[in-house]
Simulated assay, not measured.
Amino acid sequence: MSTGGDTPTRKIIHVDMDAFYASVEQRDNPELRGKPVAVGGSAARGVVAAASYEARAFGVRSALPSVTAKRRCPDLVFVPPRFDIYRAVSAQIREIFAEHTDLIEPLSLDEAYLDVTQNKQGISFATEIATIIRARIKEVTGLNASAGISYCKFLAKMASDLNKPNGQAVISPKNGPPFVEALAVKKFHGVGPATAAKMERLGILTGADLKAQSLSWLQEHFGKSGTWYYNISRGIDNRAVQPDRPRKSVGAEDTFMVDIVDLDAARAEITPLAAKVWRHCEAKGLHGRTVTLKVKYADFQIITRSRTTSAPIGRLDDLEAIAQTLLEPLFPAPKGIRLLGVTLSSFIDDEETTAGQLELQI
């Protein structure tokens, strides 16, 4: 099969572990099996880093405040995260991937893209490779994985969710465009709640609605992202699978449905953003020294404020405290705030990390 000329259709697999952190905890502690489990946080404070499928049935999910999670699921069991164990298991999974291809792009400890167009074992069908990989992961780690197979990264990612948990699905070149057309835009990978709400206000509810818009119209309303939306609404995603590259920063941001005008409301939004950044950095073993606060006002003016420490930031509380101190001087706000973001950068290697962790006195 080819896309035209001599260029073969790419074969992309997206492998996504099922409830990874929680599944590792249930694997290692038989008493947790079959119970609703939340990794991270506690019954009194913090946020959920990951939830088992038993907990998800009650509406418990990652980034949910622990107090809310406990209210939704009174029998929820909280366990502290063990990132050293998660990283070790992730390394085992990466070794399995490497049996088939060197074109591996990790997104986190529990998911990755693989380009198996040309693969080490000469297997013709990507579906067969995905089946083998999932079976090997189960054999080696005792954990379940799901997979999506397609000709591009966007659709492989979407396909991996279709038969979760412990399943796989294929979206072929023929079926890609109609699949996207029928899909609700709020389910598009990369389209968050704020963007989905904006699209809805503009009358865009499905991929077909998105496809009906011109490139210039999408660029007018969504800036640089307009080109991306134009392409994916047609099932086009030419991004290559990129093997490991050093991360320069990790950030999280949120756009609000109602502009924020007071400090307490802004402070409350910083907490989950810092937690999201910290979870990702812990999972990837990243240690940074620079915290950047991003603020977008109602008139779309953007400002940033940064602070760099002499040693790597060693705790979530320290990361959040720095972000909060960067936020406070911006109030009283001259105008409403529509977006806040927190980023950690200036990463150092593990040898430097051992020199000492930052203990803030704030």
Results as ranks from 00 to 15, higher is better:
244 D>H: 14
211 K>C: 02
268 A>C: 11
212 A>T: 10
313 I>C: 05
241 V>Y: 00
241 V>Q: 01
254 D>P: 04
210 L>E: 00
264 D>T: 15
298 A>P: 10
239 R>C: 06
253 E>Q: 13
224 K>Q: 10
299 D>F: 08
314 G>M: 09
297 Y>K: 03
247 R>K: 14
303 I>G: 03
255 T>V: 12
210 L>S: 00
275 A>M: 12
249 S>G: 13
236 I>C: 07
262 D>V: 13
242 Q>D: 08
313 I>V: 09
247 R>F: 13
279 R>A: 08
292 T>C: 07
247 R>C: 08
213 Q>P: 05
309 T>W: 13
294 K>R: 12
259 D>G: 04
287 H>I: 09
244 D>N: 12
233 S>C: 09
242 Q>V: 12
228 W>D: 02
232 I>P: 01
216 S>Y: 14
209 D>Q: 05
226 G>N: 01
227 T>L: 15
254 D>S: 13
233 S>A: 14
297 Y>C: 03
312 P>R: 12
207 G>A: 01
273 L>T: 02
283 A>R: 10
303 I>S: 11
311 A>T: 12
253 E>H: 10
256 F>P: 01
261 V>A: 12
277 V>Y: 06
224 K>Y: 06
236 I>N: 05
244 D>E: 15
217 W>V: 03
270 I>V: 14
285 G>T: 09
223 G>N: 04
222 F>A: 02
212 A>V: 06
293 L>P: 01
244 D>Y: 15
301 Q>P: 03
270 I>F: 01
256 F>C: 10
244 D>W: 13
